[in-house]
Amino acid sequence: MKILVAVKRVVDYAVKIRVKPDKTGVDTQNVKMSMNPFCEIALEEALRIKEAGFAKEVVAVSIGPSQCVDTLRTGLAMGADRGIHVEASSSFLPLTIAKILKSLADVENPGLIFLGKQAIDDDCNQTGQMVAALLGWPQATFASKVVLDKDKQSATVDREVDGGLETLSVDLPAVITTDLRLNQPRYATLPNIMKAKSKPIKKMTLEDLKVDIKSDIEIVEVTEPPKRKSGVIVSSVDELIDKLKNEAHVV
């Protein structure tokens, strides 16, 4: 079985985000970019499944500008067997990405597609669901535990829901999106970084995949969240009550 893992290049989790002055998006110039943490978890899970003997190959795919190759190299250094870079100059919304992944799945025929449950830059949490729908495959989102059954060709997935844990059984092929507590991703070791250098990264274009990239959504404006106002020290109980009544309107 082959596992396809989508990895997204995003602004590093630890970087303080700055919104561009013209409000068209987030500033990514001279900003540290890394693999989306949820994608890292997805890749780690795929690698563990391969190491347990349930899969033969793990393929990492990234969609975006040429620097996405760095993200794929990270994936290869973690242990993915090969990479696919779908070149695209602009960033896409989930539906376009899902369409690209669908046509890739048609070519690659994976038994499982792993994705992070969401990317930390746009927080959409839609791509996995859309890919499953386009492919007509079962989906298990927010996975916190994944167990494969080779004989039955199915996966048992625990998912974290508001009320507790929900356990699903899905037939393969399936789409699984990963939550934070699924695993702790490995580091890229020197021997693996060395091996990664000889692993292939295949370049593909949108034309190759015959995907229509027109978007139905237009981003109107990106703004920073309102700044937190500093607190005030009141000088008397009367003043406090007055503020609670007339400013906060809570009493």
Partner: peptide, 13 residues
């Protein structure tokens, strides 16, 4: 000179 090692892939690491 080095027997093993890792390189941080992101700021968190």
């Amino acid at each position: 000179l080095v027997s093993d090692g890792v390189i941080a892939q992101d700021i968190n690491q």
